[in-house]
């Protein structure tokens, strides 16, 4: 029963992915991406990864959708109606997929308890048996994340910080380039505005 639920949810994911490929409207694709993340998170629950499901629901489905909508509100939301389904791309993708499927043939089956990942005495077994006494929290994922692999989490925080700085420097700073004069009454032009205010500036373009 558990495997059946997981498999059906996976099939839903494939259907949604096909929908994302076929649909031309970007807004529809973004809505479908939200549904995709939500389904994926549901499947994570079925696969016992509750922490991952939490993060995927909040970050993948929530924040990511809002980010895409924000980006679309600055740009256009129609994809050009063109037949750009090239046979080369299809061939490349099919060949790559076939190779990957060939690679899965000798992998341990879904749910196998005897695969190398499950029985390695230094990884899963050790965390499952010792983390309760060594670190403390009942949630083993928390112990591993914050203690055994704490530097990983530190690096993650640094990456998120760097990404935030990159977004701010791309969008938030005042633009002064030759050839693109900001209009006199543009809100981002007045001194003392915060970068967040400048984010709201309507797009000014040379070509439209």
């Amino acid at each position: 029963m558990e495997t059946l639920v997981a498999d059906v949810l996976l099939t839903f994911l494939v259907v949604i992915a096909v929908g994302i490929i076929v649909l031309r409207d970007l807004l529809a694709a973004v809505i479908l991406l939200g549904a995709y993340s939500l389904t994926a998170a549901g499947a994570f629950v079925v696969m016992d990864a509750v922490d991952v499901a939490f993060t995927e629901a909040a970050v993948g489905s929530g924040i990511s959708t809002i980010l895409f909508l924000g980006a679309l509100s600055f740009t256009k939301h129609e994809q050009k109606p063109r037949g750009n389904d090239s046979w080369v791309a299809v061939l490349f993708v099919v060949v790559t997929g076939a190779l990957l499927i060939y690679g899965t043939l000798d992998m341990p089956y879904y749910g196998s308890a005897t695969s190398a990942a499950q029985t390695n005495p230094d990884l899963a077994v050790r965390f499952l048996q010792q983390s309760g006494s060594e670190v403390g929290p009942p949630n083993i994922v928390t112990s591993v994340l914050a203690s055994y692999r704490g530097y990983d989490t530190l690096g993650e925080t640094m990456v998120v910080f760097a990404a935030g700085m990159a977004v701010l420097s791309l969008l938030g700073l005042k633009r002064r380039r030759p050839g693109l004069e900001a209009p006199e009454d543009a809100p981002g032009d007045t001194p003392g505005e915060t970068p967040a205010d400048a984010l709201d500036e309507p797009p000014t373009s040379r070509h439209t």
């Binding site: 939200g34 939500l38 489905s61 929530g62 959708t65 809002i66 909508l69």
Partner: peptide
């Protein structure tokens, strides 16, 4: 909650 917020945002 996320479902509701996402719908309202769209």
């Amino acid at each position: 909650l996320i479902n509701f917020v996402g719908t309202i945002a769209v």
